[in-house]
């Protein structure tokens, strides 16, 4: 029974269950075809759909590990996509690789600045993270629309399209990017002492300062990383649709990202974090949406479906719930207090 205590068992089980449902209720769900040397099929689509979420959730994990939260990720996605499309739209030759590279670099650089801004508000001015990032969440969408002058900018750039829809060695580029970022983040936190110091800051900022940890610098850093991840995710999103849409890009993704982080076993109060768990959580959420479509659940029911899955999952992950459910009658007799008068 000890494996049941591992929090990640439950998301994996839930994922398996979802895929099983999909297998039963929808034909050809697991068909993976090779077409022009590329992989296609619903499982690949799930991975592609989860790429932006994985990216955002990885950054979010680091922020949450320090006890913070970043609500602005969706807006940063919008800004980054808008920036890239603006530059590409102005190129004489939209297919020039150099121009697109410039656009991508500029978009990510802008995201970094936005992250620095969040970090400054939280770490230097000491504003509560939820409010500090709420500012950018509101203003960021305005900024994105400002960049695109309120229009949806469409671009016709094949190099830019590669980011969201291209393939390398038969694998989708967006998935490769997400995996790369995940691996880099994992190496950076677990092969150096970064992970420990972040967990320490999240566990107790006061004690961390007295132990000589530069909590402020680390805090700024995680917001910058989070914005960078969101920026890349924004590029994938915008490249996918070949346009910049300041209103819809990354809408509500912050909630899904936070959900993914928590499902992955990281507490919102900060401290211990698990990047692998986060990735799993993100894939689970993406699968949820895709499967709901695949098995023919009407769109208006999807939210209720999602709510049920989240509740079941969280209860399964809760040791307190399992204790109540599987309580052996002999182990804890008389839970009621018998208070003498």
């Amino acid at each position: 029974m000890t494996f049941l205590k591992n929090r990640l068992v439950w998301p994996v089980a839930m994922l398996a269950l979802l895929l099983l449902c999909a297998l039963i209720f929808s034909d050809g769900f697991f068909d993976i075809r090779i077409q022009d040397g590329h992989l296609f099929g619903t499982p690949i689509n799930i991975l592609r759909a989860s790429a932006p979420l994985v990216l955002v959730a990885v950054g979010m994990t680091l922020v949450i590990s320090t006890g913070g939260i970043d609500l602005s990720v969706g807006s940063v996605m919008a800004v980054s996509g808008a920036m890239a499309c603006l530059i590409i739209g102005d190129l004489a030759n939209q297919n020039s690789v150099g121009g697109v590279t410039l656009a991508v670099v500029a978009a990510i650089a802008l995201s970094l600045v936005l992250g620095l801004w969040n970090g400054f508000l939280v770490a230097v001015l000491g504003i509560q993270p939820i409010i500090a990032t709420l500012i950018l969440m509101v203003a960021g969408r305005g900024l994105a629309q400002l960049i695109t002058s309120g229009q949806i900018i469409n671009v016709q750039s094949s190099p830019y399209k590669v980011i969201g829809t291209g393939f390398v060695l038969g694998l989708p580029v967006s998935v490769l990017i997400a995996v790369a970022v995940l691996v880099i983040a994992a190496l950076l936190t677990r092969r150096t002492a970064l992970g420990l110091l972040l967990e320490s800051v999240g566990g107790s900022p006061v004690a961390s300062r007295l132990a000589g940890i530069q909590a402020r610098r680390l805090t700024i850093m995680v917001y910058v990383v989070s914005a960078a991840c969101a920026g890349i995710a924004g590029l994938i999103y915008s490249s996918n649709v070949s346009s910049a849409d300041g209103n819809n890009a990354g809408n509500l993704i912050e909630l899904d990202a936070i959900l993914a982080v928590v499902i992955g076993g990281t507490a919102l109060t900060g401290g211990r974090f698990s990047l692998a768990g986060t990735a799993l959580g993100a894939i689970l959420i993406a699968t949820l949406d895709t499967t709901a479509q695949a098995v023919g659940i009407p769109p208006e029911t999807t939210l209720v479906f999602k709510a049920v899955v989240v509740v079941v999952l969280c209860l399964a992950q809760s040791p307190a719930f399992r204790a109540r459910l599987f309580r052996r009658p002999a182990a804890r007799p008389a839970a009621r207090a018998e208070v003498p008068a």
Binding site: L196, S204, V206, L210
Partner: peptide
């Protein structure tokens, strides 16, 4: 409140200051 990080292990708590330095 000013010393240990309750959630971290004994080992991590012991090496924390050295690592921070």
């Amino acid at each position: 409140t000013e010393g240990l990080i309750g959630e971290l292990s004994v080992r991590e708590n012991i090496i924390l200051a050295l690592q921070a330095a």
